[in-house]
């Protein structure tokens, strides 16, 4: 499995890494980016099975990165992980094609659920 984690906060990326199911963490290839531009480049290069994407980031924010990833690949699975819990922000990213919006800090139970829901193969 290929996983992409994009967040300008190191702690935030670490939280996802540490809290994901151990089996997946051991077997998966994991890439990390710190802004929207890196997210797009890494996505195009590795075609990950799942993306965890923050919204508020320097250089390019998550809204723009999500738009471009969706334009590049309609089958992409992007989970937005954000501190922005406003309903309108959630509606906006859902309309842009995100799979779901996860409130920070994401917990291990929710991560297990997310990975369990991934289509196998």
């Amino acid at each position: 499995m290929k996983i992409l984690i994009v967040d300008d906060s190191k702690l935030s990326r670490l939280t996802i890494l540490k809290r994901m199911p151990a089996a997946i963490k051991e077997s998966a290839d994991i890439w990390q980016g710190a802004n929207g531009v890196e997210a797009i480049a890494l996505y195009k290069e590795h075609r990950p099975d799942i993306v965890f994407l923050d919204l508020t980031m320097p250089v390019m924010d998550g809204f723009q990165a999500l738009t471009q990833i969706r334009a590049f690949d309609q089958t992409s699975r992007v989970h937005i992980v954000t501190a922005d819990i406003q309903t309108k922000s959630q509606e906006k990213v859902m309309a842009l094609g995100a799979v779901a919006v996860e409130a920070k800090p994401i917990d291990s139970a929710r991560l297990a659920e997310i990975f369990a829901a991934l289509p196998t193969g």
């Binding site: 906060s9 702690l11 935030s12 501190a83 819990i85 406003q86 920070k104 800090p105």
Partner: peptide, 16 residues
């Protein structure tokens, strides 16, 4: 760095 991210999360709640 740690405090910044935690405050960022908290501030998201405040903003919302």
């Amino acid at each position: 760095e740690v405090l910044s991210e935690l405050i960022n999360i908290s501030f998201g709640t405040a903003t919302a």
